[in-house]
Design a protein around this nucleic acid. Structure first.
Lengths: 139, 139
DNA sequence: TATAACTTTGTAATCGCTACAAGTTACATA
DNA sequence: TATGTAACTTGTAGCGATTACAAAGTTATA
């Protein structure tokens, strides 16, 4: 996604497209590793030496609030973030290397037969185990 | 589950069934509200006035480690716990009252068509929305 | 009963995150 | 282009959940 496109997207969401915000969005578009706020902060520090961690948190919350990002809560102690420009998907965390992978949502996960009266507005599927790389490395 | 049964269960898991541990397990068997460590601590304090919060955490970790409890990570800032003596199920958190409900796992969630090489050893389904009580109250 | 292993307790510390206030910037309007 | 205002950024201080650690207590077993 180009800078212009991102700028438009943010404006349409009612957010001012500051340099820091654009950089954060671009980072999340480019690196699909589900980084934490701190990882984003450290990665962008060379480019924005004066940027504050608080700005990263502010931005992430603003972007989540307007639907441009999704939170990934697969690791309770570390909130992670994911561009919302992909279709809904589950997440898999490798217990060995700690990486987080996107996974397809199994067919049939559609929320039909929920107990009556529960109005579901978000669904998260989190899987844990060993990823192919770590399985191979262990052999 | 009786105290004797719980004692056996813990012994089989290689854990000493101390009074504190039994009380914590019993609390989780009795109250299916997915309490946090702090809630358990406060609830048991009258019975064990000298118990330390650290003991609660130690116990919860030990029990999770040996499969007697499951962690519920539906709220990133507050780890919650669930007896493992129930069949696998998903969780629903009401955004209005904050309560957490057990939910059936939708059919078809069985992890067949996962991308090759991913060895899944745990699955968590987290749903959020409005529960029946809060929906009714709002009308 | 001695010894080792396990468990509990209390304190201090860590870590992710948030609150807040002051300074800066963007942008609509004139 | 100038200007007022709302939005944004920054730094510091602080909070709450959790963990580290060491000392004291308990239990199992030889």
């Amino acid at each position: 996604m180009t800078t212009v496109e991102l700028t438009d997207k943010m404006r349409r969401a009612g957010l001012r497209p500051s340099a820091q915000r654009l950089a954060i969005m671009q980072y999340l578009e480019m690196f699909r590793t589900h980084p934490s706020a701190d990882e984003i902060y450290k990665a962008l520090l060379p480019e924005f030496p004066s940027m504050s961690l608080t700005t990263v948190y502010n931005t992430l919350h603003a972007l989540v609030g307007s639907g441009l990002l999704r939170e990934v809560e697969i690791e309770p102690a570390n909130l992670r973030f994911d561009s919302a420009s992909t279709p809904p998907h589950g997440h898999f965390r490798c217990r060995c290397c700690g990486r987080i992978f996107d996974m397809p949502l199994p067919d049939g996960i559609i929320l039909e037969n929920m107990p009556g009266g529960f109005a579901v507005d978000s669904l998260d599927l989190y899987l844990k185990g060993t990823c192919p790389d770590c399985t191979t490395a262990r052999d």
